[in-house]
Design a protein around this nucleic acid. Structure first.
Lengths: 344, 344
DNA sequence: TGACTTTGGTAAAAGGTTTTCTCTCTGCAA
DNA sequence: TTGCAGAGAGAAAACCTTTTACCAAAGTCA
């Protein structure tokens, strides 16, 4: 019974550079210089040290290294996006961009709790993170925690930042334009825009771009970000008299899905009778809708990549121009619009 | 123009314990002991040091502390779950449990790439993590990376682990039993189980528990984890002759959603005519279905909490019994079954 | 008064790595 | 033979904190 108890793995002593030096028959400083390719020494010595190090499985202790170099090769990603719908792709991009540089990422989900946010920020600072990326679920809201005057650089991604910092966000106007132009291109002229609440900044951006691109026929219906609103709005349109639209541009994929459902219930065929475009390219909604949704992808992973590289640049002291960077969107064509390969 | 360039925040010198000691007029060791509440000293001195430390905003450098104590107050969470559907709740639980202990979490998404996994594991070890939690998207698959013989403790959560380690997983049989018993309790007797692929271990566990709980009427349909399979299976059932079921127990929420859609298309009322139960409690699917799904929650957050506390215990050298811990599920009652408050 | 304990505090080592400075050769020109 | 340059390598400091060992002064007991 007692043998079944799990203890911490045997306390095998970590191999340090001392061991390498001893095994290679050189001093610690020579070993260090050999491994880091600096200092002067015979090529043979350098090779031997490296071989020995690899043989005995030496890996430098990042804590000790960081203590001296003031770089921990660690950054923090702060988010209040519980579902991870936006954070996850951003995180994936950040991680992908930074893993090559040996940087690991602390993920801190702070909900909307300022106290929790404060705790996490302090924990990260204690751990000497090289920088912080703040990300959220809304472009026009700040995280509930003060990130100014921190001793490390802060980059904002998909959340409102300070004016003197660098912020990455999607170009929603561009995304909306892509969608509408695609609909026009496949011959749809009567396009209605069903979208989310008016108090979202991106709702305005998308709606404005829609109006501009659609020319005269401006019809925007504001509601909430849910399937049921998409369903309800579509019902309203088809219940009222007058000419019906032949395309719906929806503010997100959930609304689009609700709209598609409502159309099917009325026996209206998507995409033959009506084309539907979503926004977000939230795979789990867009790809599972029948038919799968053509939608706008905000390229959040690329956004994360750039944010990661930027915070790294700042951490290394390389200059970066502050300001807001809008990243272009991408239209993902699936089957909810038709047009591309007629009746495949 | 040049002033617009953002540099790394002015290189304000970090305040160390030296500064505290100097400001309080004591030695460094006294300052340390005062702040950590050990050693002997006058109460007045201790207070004064603490006050000074807080005044000048001293925060101990976790790197230096970790170097000595061999504890970094950092753990790694390794996952191959890209969507984060399972990882995110687990992560939330881990983080919540550990933030109180000052532990931060590295999130490493390794897809299914062994090389990437290896890189991340090595990066974490270099950073002297106190432990690693491995999590995934399937109970019966290992992560594509070897975690045996690591110098730190490893705990498995929602993924297959080694026999000598500790593994946390959901008790799927319990979850399935909860679902079926609920259906029986509200008077449903003809229950069909529509579920995922046969090669999933949890599919068997759930199906077996269903058979056991449902008594005679065993009808299991295996397929894939998608809405369209739920839709298709439901269509099959209603297209073939014979008595129809009055309840569907689905292997996940997406299948359940497909089933609900198929029923609605046939004019069959949910929950009046047929009750539907899902599995996973994936809010975004379950709550947005019309009607919202009654479903089984695997309590992944609690699972994460326990995994976090366990890896912490191991890191601190406290003994833990190895083995598989099955955590109970919870039935989340929404509107897709009826019964609870008849025709509310 | 002498021996011993307690109190309040300091000096120094340890932890693992990098970097700067110094030292000792060897070879070569004067 | 002296002087010198440069190659190769080692010693030591630095990073910041915790901990152990130690010391001096003051109090306690016989």
């Amino acid at each position: 019974m007692r043998e079944d108890i799990l203890k911490t793995g045997g306390a095998k002593k970590r191999i340090t550079i001392h061991d390498v030096a001893a095994a290679a028959g050189v001093s610690i400083s020579t070993a260090s210089k050999a491994l880091n390719n600096n200092g002067r020494m015979g090529a043979e010595t350098r090779e031997r040290v490296k071989r020995v190090a690899s043989d005995i499985g030496f890996r430098p202790n990042a804590l000790a290294r960081g203590l001296l170099s003031k770089r921990s090769f660690t950054i923090g990603l702060l988010t209040n996006d519980t579902y991870g719908r936006f954070t996850l792709p951003v995180m994936a991009g950040v991680s992908e961009a930074l893993v090559d540089h040996g940087v690991s990422v602390f993920l801190c989900a702070i909900e909307d709790d300022p106290a929790l946010g404060q705790i996490h920020v302090e924990a990260m600072l204690d751990k000497q993170v090289d920088g912080i990326i703040a990300t959220g679920k809304r472009l026009d809201r700040r995280l509930p925690v003060d990130l100014s005057n921190l001793p490390v650089p802060v980059v904002y991604a998909f959340t409102e930042g300070t004016s003197d910092s660098v912020t990455f966000r999607s170009d929603d106007a561009h995304g909306a334009t892509l969608a509408v132009e695609w609909l026009l291109q496949i011959g749809r002229r009567r396009i209605v825009h069903i979208t989310g609440p008016k108090d979202f900044f991106s709702v305005h951006e998308r709606a404005d771009a829609y109006s501009k691109a659609a020319g005269g026929s401006e019809a925007v219906m504001y509601g909430v970000w849910s399937e049921s609103w998409g369903h309800q709005a579509t019902a309203e349109i088809w219940n009222r008299p007058g000419e019906k639209p032949n395309a719906l541009f929806c503010g997100n994929d959930q609304i689009a899905r609700g709209a598609v459902d409502a159309l099917r219930e009325r026996g209206i065929n998507v995409p033959d009778d009506v084309s539907v475009v979503g926004f977000d390219n939230w795979e789990i909604v867009a790809a599972q809708t029948r038919p799968p949704l053509t939608t706008v992808d905000m390229e959040l992973k690329e956004l994360g990549r750039q944010a990661g590289l930027t915070v790294l640049a700042l951490a290394e002291g390389r200059p970066v121009e502050p300001g807001v960077r809008k990243l272009p969107c991408r239209l993902v064509v699936r089957q909810s619009c038709g047009g591309v390969s007629p009746r495949e």
